[in-house]
Design a protein around this nucleic acid. Structure first.
Lengths: 341, 341
DNA sequence: GGTGACCTGATGTCCTTTTTTCATGCGTAC
DNA sequence: GTACGCATGAAAAAAGGACATCAGGTCACC
């Protein structure tokens, strides 16, 4: 399949018998050109459907006006929202966006970075994969002075700007909510422990317990790799606990939904026997039965803030010094935690 | 913020005191170069962390190895799946992907096309916005010989390859299923009537009715603009019908979920009073109460097929003649249509 | 000495944009 | 009337990076 030919300045110049530079000046509306010549050139350009070759332009000014975005997976509603926010606000400022997904693999993440850098993106926005437990590729990026920001799944030691949710705060909110509804033995189901959000949410969970004078119980902290099979394993494990805990806080909604679905299939009643809560407020969470108590994380907002800050830095509107933007979450209490005390 | 400097062939050449072409040949592992020189150059390149500038390369060969994708919205699980499939298989063949969303607006769609074309993407993959009811921008693309394919939301008159689901077939399956479970007065809730999928699914609905000897009843065809408010308006309208219909087929899952949610709030029982079915098999549909009967559309597969065919055309592996790829759907019967006859 | 093999350098191309240089014309001053 | 200077418009050149092609140079062997 051959690609349609693109009209270049050269052709316009040839057609009108002027030099390429004259054409350039005319299109740039330079004052040092005869009005008549200018008019004629602009007209011809339009006639020939001339579109400047952004590639050549970018090569010259060595800016592509393109951002690279790496997310663990696009099909996650949360990341899709982030991308949506990034898109909208990048476009508003004249930037395009190239999106890659790491599929939760660090190798893929590294490969993505390489590709995007080779494509000369002006900057990167990265949310780390689940697997990412070493950070050389990010430090290299930093050393090569390629601007980037981290969002949601960040690593704190890297001296770049980060946009995160107040994950500890959200987990505190939700644990506290469970405590207030009367729960006293609350299980925390964590994702992979290397994950930034796993750690932070655990912090919030423990803090809430401490404030209620409840001692940390290692048996009450479960870890899943977030695959459906492993989530169900945990659901079984909890169902087999004797006595049953009276509350379960799952690190993330899909995990909570898997657990809930399994429990329903074996007749465990939520919230009567166990109160359940998740995190993120996925669209699914509002429609399961019972609707899931969770914490809302506006992904669109996060994308918007992250990209806006990054572009501010690129355009020199704000200092290059790394900052940390922390977004607040909101508790969304629903039926899954509604216990009659 | 200044961008880190990229090592070029020039610098390698300068450092080693050879010419740029020698460096080029060494990196291309050309046989017409002294082994020792080659080794040294490759080594130095690696040392200096040389990365070829894809921009310059693209300018030269006038291929960017980048595809442009336009979807109505990224946050839709279905389109996210398509993108995921496109990504994975484009990457496999050495292509990058630039994604834009039209936000269901034709103006945005036109703007996206313009941006992507200016960025010199090698080809486009487009799923039309809800609003798109004229097609000049697509014909222009065609006339400019810029390769593109349409997927899911297509327009039949454009002579390019299209990848769709057997929408009529899926709607037939689901309507037929409702008929088999005993429904006789079945309402079809359609999206905007310009939409390709609205039309096709209506076709299937009518065909199934015809085969059961049931006459088409215009009162049984409702149209929503797919906003939540309008969906609820339809839900109310159906709830007010006297007698109630015994089955409702909603053109798309989120619509069905909106309807279901409203009905639950006013005490209409599904499936006892009305059997309900959707289309697409969103993740949400499996977890609502009752779980929603629907038709599964593998978006990942669609993305994969669409991008593979497009790249086959680009690479000259298959003819440029437009073809139509139609994917089959699978009925997913769930409780929402389970009536005791 | 001539021819071929082998290696390497220079040049041009892709396209746009910016800078420099050149040419023309007009006006003023000698 | 001629010469010089200045203003203006337009062409030429360069830069940006990769790479193909052509041309040149060196060595060895016949």
């Amino acid at each position: 399949m051959k690609k349609g030919h693109q009209v270049t300045m050269k052709e316009i110049a040839k057609k009108l018998g002027v030099s390429v530079s004259t054409v350039s000046r005319a299109l740039k509306d330079s004052p040092e050109l005869h009005e008549e010549t200018k008019r004629k050139i602009v007209e011809t350009a339009k006639e020939m459907n001339y579109q400047p070759n952004l590639l050549a332009q970018s090569l010259r000014i060595s800016r592509t006006k393109t951002l690279g975005v790496i997310v663990p997976e696009i099909t996650s509603h949360f990341f899709a929202s982030c991308i949506s926010g990034i898109q909208d606000f990048a476009n508003k400022r004249g930037y395009n966006v190239m999106i890659c997904q790491s599929n939760e693999s660090i190798d893929q993440e590294i490969a993505n970075i390489k590709t995007l850098v080779a494509s000369q993106v002006d900057a990167l926005m990265i949310s780390l994969s689940r697997e990412t437990n070493h950070y050389e590729h990010l430090f290299e990026l930093y050393n090569r002075e390629i601007p980037f920001v981290l969002f949601d799944r960040v690593h704190e030691d890297i001296p770049v700007s980060k946009v995160t949710f107040n994950d500890a705060g959200g987990a505190y909110q939700v644990t506290n909510h469970l405590l207030e509804t009367g729960c006293r033995s609350i299980v925390y189901v964590s994702g992979p422990e290397d994950l930034y959000i796993s750690k932070k949410r655990k912090e919030g969970y423990l803090k809430a317990l401490r404030e209620y004078g409840i001692e940390e119980n290692p048996d009450f902290i479960k870890v899943t790799d977030l695959t459906e099979a492993d989530n169900i394993r945990i659901a079984k494990e909890i169902a087999a606990m004797n006595p049953l805990p009276d509350g379960v806080f799952c690190m993330i909604d899909p995990l909570a939904v898997d657990v809930l679905t399994y429990w329903k299939s074996v007749g465990i009643k939520v919230p009567e026997q166990i109160a359940l809560a998740g995190f993120t407020n996925n669209p699914t969470s509002g429609v399961v039965e019972p609707p899931l108590t969770t914490v809302s994380q506006p992904g669109y907002e996060m994308g918007k803030l992250a990209v806006s800050h990054l572009l501010d830095q690129l355009d020199g509107l704000v200092s290059d010094d790394p900052i940390s933007i922390v977004l607040d979450t909101t508790l969304v209490p629903r039926k899954s935690s509604q216990r009659s005390i």
